[in-house]
Amino acid sequence: MFGITSKTGQLLHQDHLNTIATLQKMEEFLVKQTSKRPPDLADEALRRLIKDLATGIDDEITRHFGFEEGHLFPALAEAGESGMTDFLMSEHATIRPIAQDIGRRSREALEKGFTPESWAEYHTIGMEMIEREVFHIQKEEMGLLAAVNALIDADTDAKLSMIFAGA
């Protein structure tokens, strides 16, 4: 990713950093735990990790995706960049139900714990969500933030960054 000159780009980038940090921790845990061994949810650190994942991913698909789809992508489309935003929207549409599913399963697990079956499913869906979301962020960091730098003027940038900060 290159020098991010726009305020909106910087805020989106910070969001990406936070999301990646949570996803990295979750990925390391899932790989170490394997799909065959349900974890013990009496472990406070693990409960916090699952809670952080559920909260973080919920924030990503509502606030972050919502801002992009409702404000940023239309502004970029107006500036002539609709090809990339259409593609990123289609990725949002793929990620959103998987993220909602993992959020629901996380909350259920925090209440009831995992069975071997529910853990195996959680592991599979969790790994898929992490991979899709990381790949999506890679594309946004390379293409979207560069497009924001290049195509969004200072006034629009100021307006968009205020909307995003207040979202």
Binding site: M1, F2, G3, I20, V134, I137, Q138, E141, M142
Partner: peptide, 15 residues
């Protein structure tokens, strides 16, 4: 300078 930061999710090298 484009691909490595993207694949590694890292900031670009100093200009």
């Amino acid at each position: 300078h484009v691909l490595i930061p993207m694949f590694a999710l890292a900031p670009a090298a100093e200009t």
